[in-house]
């Protein structure tokens, strides 16, 4: 057993980053208050069906995360948001929306991301055309075991639009959301697996297969699953007289515009810093980067540090990340917090 620590750390967000950091810090003997605005821990992992690149069940990772926070030193508050955080000298006073007052020696912001609201890309007609759905809604369909269009039949052809709300100045997002390309590939395979007679087309600007085994998955999608990839951004969706979607895209490799009918159009919605995270940033005067996420103190060797001493970051509140990188980032935050609190203790002793 590690030496018992008196220090108390408030972690905001019980998603992948929050749970990982909470578990590791508790094992170091710190007392943790884990604040989660949703009704259960696990964050966005709760929404996913299978994970890229190996298509393991997301429940397995969820089980790992829940196992991490199963520790008497962690006190989790669900359905709770942060009301205010006040810093006084070296200490923080956190007030939750339930009126709890939590004194803290350090704060870890693991506030995660919000999904882009595709209504902002009016040209795709999300919320207007019945068969325009998001990548998250497709995950729900996988969960339900049936991929059906609004007409209640399996689609004959599915279009997948990459970069919806990412790399798009028109919606104020310059950044790449990183995980959508590989999600598209994963989902394309899953559609082909569940509906072998259904054609799948991915419309991409660039294929950004940054992680281990991602490029291999992309290759598998082409080789084994016959997924079609067309380089070009879909500019418009509309509905024809039969109620089938008609999309317009520039086939940039052919150098000509292309039109095609699809039965289901899946928008790969990007990720943005969460609204709750941005509220805290405003409250604490934390810097926000041009990508809208929290600005870290140093992009190379200080990416868990904020511009305020004692406030740390973990996970996708700093940038788009996959689960693997989020876990690594959260573990690194643990090291930063631990060394910070130890240095504080020394100062007091001296």
């Amino acid at each position: 057993m590690p030496e018992k620590q008196d220090e108390h750390i408030v972690i905001v967000g019980a998603g992948t980053a929050g749970c990982t950091a909470a578990g590791q810090l508790a094992r170091e003997g710190y007392r943790i208050s884990l604040i989660e605005k949703e009704s259960k821990p696990g964050g966005k992992v709760n929404n996913w069906y299978q994970l890229f690149p190996d298509r393991r069940k997301s429940e397995e990772v969820l089980k790992y995360l829940l196992g991490e926070i199963d520790n008497p030193l962690i006190n989790i508050s669900l359905n709770t948001d942060i009301d205010s955080i006040i810093k006084e000298k070296k200490k923080f006073l956190v007030t939750t929306t339930h009126g709890e007052l939590l004194p803290a020696d350090a704060i870890l912001l693991a506030t995660g991301f919000d999904l882009f609201n595709p209504e902002r890309k009016e040209e795709y007609g999300y919320g207007i055309y019945d068969d325009v759905i998001t990548s998250v809604e497709l995950e729900d369909k996988f969960h339900s075991g049936a991929i059906l269009t609004s007409k209640g039949v399996p689609p004959k052809r599915v279009g997948i639009v990459h970069c919806v709300g990412s790399r798009d100045e028109k919606v104020g997002n310059f950044h790449c959301s990183k995980v959508c390309c590989v999600t598209a590939v994963k989902q394309a395979i899953e559609i082909r697996e569940m509906l072998p007679g259904t054609e799948v087309f991915c419309f991409y600007m660039d294929m950004r297969m940054f992680g281990p085994y991602y490029e291999e998955l992309y290759r598998e999608a082409q080789e084994k699953w016959g997924v079609n990839f067309i380089r070009g951004k879909v500019s418009e969706a509309s509905e024809n007289i039969e109620g089938r979607l008609l999309i317009k895209v520039e086939d940039t490799l052919a150098g000509r515009p292309l039109k095609m009918q699809v039965d289901l159009l899946v928008l790969m919605i990007g990720i943005e810093n969460s609204l709750s995270g941005k509220r805290i940033a405003e409250d604490l005067d934390l810097k926000i980067g041009i990508n809208g996420f929290f600005s870290v103190l140093d992009n190379h060797y200080g990416n868990n540090l904020s511009n305020m001493e004692g406030v740390f970051f973990a996970g996708t509140c700093t940038a788009a990340m996959n689960i693997t990188d989020t876990i690594s980032h959260a573990r690194a935050a643990v090291v930063e917090i631990d060394s910070y609190l130890k240095s504080q203790k020394k100062e007091v002793e001296v």
Binding site: R256, P257, K259
Partner: peptide, 11 residues
Amino acid sequence: SSIKPRVIDYD
């Protein structure tokens, strides 16, 4: 006279 569209009509 009218011009043949350049668009690739996939269907």
